[in-house]
Amino acid sequence: MKPEKTPMQWQDWSVSAVVAGFVAVLVGFASSVAIVFQAASAAGADQAVTASWIAVLGFAMGITCIGFSWYFKAPVLTAWSTPGAALLASSLTDVSLAEAVGVFMFSAVLTLLLGLSGWFDKLSSRIPLPIAAAMLAGILFKFGLAIFISLPDAPVLVLTMLGVFLAAKRWWPRYAVPLVLMAGLLFASVTGQLQLNQVSLTLVEPVWISPEWSWQALLGVGLPLFLVTMTSQNIPGLAVLKASGYQLPVSPLLSWTGLVTLLTAPLGNFSINLAAITAAICSGPEAHSDPAKRYTAGIAAGVFYLLTGLAGATVVALFAAFPKALVATVAGVALLGTIASNLAQVSAESPHRDAAMLTFLVTASGLSFWGIASPFWGLVAGVVTLVLLNWRRG
């Protein structure tokens, strides 16, 4: 599906698309905001600076989600680099806050240059669709499992949400995820599991930190940050778009995320990139039955991200008040359709099936070498298998 440069129509909007955008932001924040706090703490950031980080990340993701989704008419979502945040949390202890900003800017410049060069576009176009689908299925598989992993901790809540999901899929399939979210929030509120007493409205004031440069920090932290973000975030993010049928020029997306990160790094944006998991929530059939109208889910996510930027501390506290089992179940049911469609491509009879299956297994395993996460190694396993099988047949 190529992007269509047509005006946005209000008829394209639906409740399911707006809820998909909200769920994407909920999952994105709830699943990894603690890692961002750890990264800020490692850099020596106080509460005001940490709040600024959350605010500018929200604004950066909001603007790019809205801009990309509106322009390309596709659900293009961005996210902060969670592996990058984990890397920073363990690498910034001996780096000053100003030098950390220099690291962010260095990584952003590398991303911008890679996007402008067009190399990433050429490389990504050579990845067969079953391999991309297998990597995506491996990434999302744990979210489907998380429903049942969380079941022992909150059995009534999870079973109630699953019951609502099955009933909605039978009679109101378009509104299945919104109804599951509403049922979960209602049940958690009635049973006292929704802890809102610590939530108060607080607007964030951005804090500017001028960069300083240390070649040791640039090579020791900045270069790994760039590599981890490329391999663990942008490649899976591209796989989501490709597996969902959206054929978009990758280089402009990469260039703009690099540029936005570069301009906002002094305020605390350490890295934004193409999203994978949250994008899958907005690009599946639960977001909208018509793939051409799912871009509205991306725009909705961008609006919710802007709200998180406006009141970052408040929104973080709100998301933290949701029971973990509720978040896990909503994310899992929102991704079931996407997981199923990608697994169908993995198991379909084709010359790529063996390579795709290995890609899926390695990615789902969660293995990591040298700080590089399993999606990259799954892709390597699939490509190597494909090359060897083709060489043998030749």
Rank of each mutant, 00 (worst) to 15 (best):
M105W: 08
M105P: 10
M105R: 09
F106Q: 12
F106P: 07
F106D: 12
S107Y: 02
S107R: 05
A108N: 11
V109T: 11
V109F: 07
L110C: 09
L110Q: 11
L110P: 12
L110E: 08
L112M: 14
L113K: 04
G115R: 06
G115S: 08
L116C: 14
S117K: 07
S117M: 12
G118T: 12
G118F: 05
W119Q: 09
F120I: 15
F120P: 07
F120G: 07
D121E: 15
K122Q: 11
K122M: 06
K122D: 14
K122T: 15
L123R: 08
L123D: 04
S124E: 03
S124W: 02
S125A: 15
S125I: 02
R126C: 10
I127N: 12
I127P: 14
L129P: 00
P130E: 00
I131M: 04
I131L: 13
I131S: 01
A133W: 05
A133L: 04
A133T: 04
A134I: 10
M135I: 15
L136N: 03
A137G: 03
G138L: 06
G138T: 01
G138C: 03
I139R: 03
I139T: 08
L140K: 07
F141K: 00
F141E: 01
K142T: 14
K142Y: 00
F143W: 08
F143D: 03
G144M: 08
G144W: 03
L145W: 06
A146W: 05
F148K: 11
F148H: 09
I149C: 02
S150V: 10
D153C: 01
D153Q: 13
A154P: 06
A154I: 02
A154D: 15
P155A: 03
V156P: 00
L157G: 11
V158C: 06
V158T: 15
V158W: 03
L159Q: 01
L159S: 15
